[in-house]
Nucleic acid binder design. Structure first.
Lengths: 158, 158
DNA sequence: TGCAAATGATACGCAAGCGAATTAGTTACC
DNA sequence: GGTAACTAATTCGCTTGCGTATCATTTGCA
C-alpha cells in the first residue's frame, strides 16, 4: 500500500474519495463545459455571463467593483469585459467623478442574455440534480458555501 | 425584480444560491489556489501532482492512459508531463511494443512528492471542513460524485 | 499484401485564471 | 501647493483546460 490519500482518518471520506479523483475540480470543469456548450450559440461564455448577472443586480458598476463582487482579479474582469463589449453586450463609460475608472453598463442585448442564462442554469441543475434527494442537495450547497468561506479565510491569512 | 436566478422552484436552493455566486466554480478555484500555494516550494502544481498520484497507483502508464484516468484531453497531459519531466519528477520511455506511445515513470523524487501531497491534502481538508458536521461532509461528497456522473452522461449525450 | 482507418503524441491557437509591472489619475499629508 | 502614496485599468507572461490539425505508427480488412 502507498500513502493514505484519503487525507482523513481512514473511516471518513474526504475530498480524495475512493476513486482518487479531485471531485471539486472535476465537477466545476464539467459544469463549465456544459454551460459553455449551451451558451455558445449566444456568443458568450459562462464566465462572461456572470459579469452580466452582476450588472443585472446593479448596472453601471466599475470594473474593480465587478472584480470584487466576482472575487477575481481586476485583470480577469478587464478581459471578460473586452469580450462582452466586442459582442455588444456591455458598454464602458469613463466615470466622470474618477477618470481612472470605467463604469460598465449592460446593453439591451446583454440584459436579454441574463434571461437566457436563467433558463440554462435551470437546465443544467435539472441534469446535475437528477435522482438526488433534494434535502441532500440543500445540505451540499450549504456545506460548499461553508467550505468556500473557510478556504477564503485561510487564503487571506497566508 | 429580475428573472429568477435560483434555477429551481423558488423555495428550493440551487447552484446559484442566494449570494448569486457560482459556488462550484469558486470552491474549485479557491482550493486550487491553496493547493498551489502549499505545493509551490516543491516546484509542482496541483494538476501536475495529480499525474504523480496516478503513477503511484500504476507506474509506467502511457500518456493517453493517464489522460483517460484523469478525464482530460491528451494534449493537457502532454504539457503536464513536460513540466514534470523538466523538474525530474517523471521520465518518458518509448513503448517498445508501440512506438507511437510514451510510457511515463515516476522518479524517486516524484514518488516522494506523492507523500508530500498526502500531507497537504490532509491540511487543506482540515481547513475546508472546519466546523462542518462530518456526516454532512459525507453527504456532500456523495452528492458531488453523483452530480459529476450526471453531467458527464449529459456531455457524452451531446 | 497493401491501403484505409484509427490511435498516440504534439504544435498552434483560444479562454480564464493568476501575479508583477506599467501608466494614468486621485488622495493625503507636510 | 507639491510630493508621496494609493488606486484603476491594462499589458505581459505564466498555467491549465479545450479543439483542431498534423505526423508517425499501428491495426484492420478487402
Amino acid at each position: 500500500m502507498g500513502p493514505d490519500l484519503s487525507g482523513q482518518a481512514r473511516s471518513r471520506p474526504s475530498s480524495l474519495t475512493v476513486d482518487y479523483k479531485p471531485v471539486f475540480h472535476e465537477l466545476a470543469r464539467v459544469r463549465a463545459i456544459l454551460f459553455d456548450a449551451k451558451l455558445a450559440p449566444h456568443g458568450i461564455t459562462i464566465s462572461q455571463a456572470w459579469v452580466l448577472v452582476h450588472l443585472w443586480q446593479e448596472d453601471g458598476l466599475s470594473q474593480s467593483k465587478i472584480a470584487e463582487r466576482m472575487d477575481v482579479a481586476t485583470v480577469t474582469t478587464s478581459k471578460l469585459i473586452d469580450k462582452l463589449e466586442e459582442h455588444g453586450f456591455v458598454t464602458r463609460q469613463v466615470d466622470p467623478s474618477d477618470r481612472r475608472s470605467n463604469l460598465v453598463f449592460a446593453t439591451d442585448e446583454g440584459k436579454a442574455l441574463v434571461r437566457v442564462l436563467t433558463k440554462i442554469v435551470y437546465e443544467v441543475d435539472e441534469v446535475a440534480n437528477a435522482g438526488i434527494d433534494p434535502s441532500d442537495i440543500a445540505t451540499t450547497l450549504t456545506v460548499l458555501g461553508r467550505m468556500r468561506e473557510n478556504l477564503k479565510v485561510e487564503l487571506a491569512r497566508i
